[in-house]
Amino acid sequence: MNKYNFAFFDEQSKREIRRALLKAVAIPGYQVPFASREMPIARGWGTGGLQVMLAIVGKKDVIKVIDQGSDDSVNAVSIRKFIQQMTGVLETAETSEASIVQSRHRVPEVPLTGEQILILQVPIPEPLRETEQSELRAKRLHAEKEYSGVWLSLFEQIMKYGCTATGADHPTMVHERYVMSPSPIPRYDNRRLNDCAALILFGAGREKKIYALPPYTKVESLAFVDRPFVSESMHGKICRLCGAEGVFLDESVQAAGAGPFYECNDTGYCRQRQSSKSRLDRGEQSGD
C-alpha cells in the first residue's frame, strides 16, 4: 500500500476527475468527458465507477461495493479489496452504514439518505448510441434536445412486442432536459432514482464519461401517454430466504417438475432481514 499515493491516483488525476464531477452535478444528466486513467482492472469491468470512487473517497469513509445486488461476486470483492488496500477505509455490507456505495447495475433496496453517495458503474453512457453511432452527432442531438430517435426506438418496440422491451437501462429524462442512461439497472430501480435523497454519480471508464444526479432531481422514465412506464412485476412473489415481498427478486429454476423459487437480488438487504428475523425468533423463544 505504501508504494502508492492515498487512493491510488496521483493528485492531478484526482483533480481532473473532481473537476468533471462538479460540472456533472451542476448539469444533471449531462455527460461530462474525462480522461479515464488506466486502472489495474480491464475497461468495462467498473473502471469508471472505481475512478469516481478513488477521486472522492477519504479516510473516514465507509464503503460498500455491490455487483448486481451481490456483495460477494468476484467484481464486487476485487473492487472492494482494491479500494480498501489503497485507502485503508472501512468496508461494510450494510447499506445504512456506508457513506459511499459503489454498485454495478442495482440501486440498494434500503433507501439512501442525504449523507450517502451512490456511484453507479456504466458500460454505455450514451442513450442515443443505438440510434446514432457518431459521438459528435449524438452530442449535437443532446444540445438541441432532439430525442426523436429514442422515442422512435421505444415506439418500434411497442409495435413489435406490444410493450417496451428494455429489460434494463430504460432511458430517462432528467430535470426535463437531458435523456440519460440510468446504467443497466432494472426498470424496478428507475423510479427510485427520481427524487432520491442521495447524490448519485455515474462513471463510464471505457467511454470516458461522468454524469450525475443531485439529490431531489426529477427523473422520469420515457413512456407514452397511452403506454405508461411499467417496471418488472414482483406481485405475489416472496423471497424464500427472508420472506421479503415487493422488492427486486431473482428467479431460479429448480429440478424438473418443481416451480421456480425467488430470492432477494440485494444480498445485503436479505441477510439483514434474515438476521433480524432470527434475533426476533430467539427473543420469542427466550420469552417462552
Binding site: 492515498f6 487512493a7 484526482k14 472522492i56 477519504g58 479516510k59 447524490l199 443531485p214
Partner: peptide
C-alpha cells in the same frame, strides 16, 4: 487529505 475533505464539502454544497 485536506483537499479531499474540502472537496467533499464542496461537492455536498453544490449537490445540495
Amino acid at each position: 487529505h485536506s483537499v479531499q475533505t474540502a472537496y467533499r464539502k464542496l461537492l455536498d454544497c453544490l449537490a445540495k
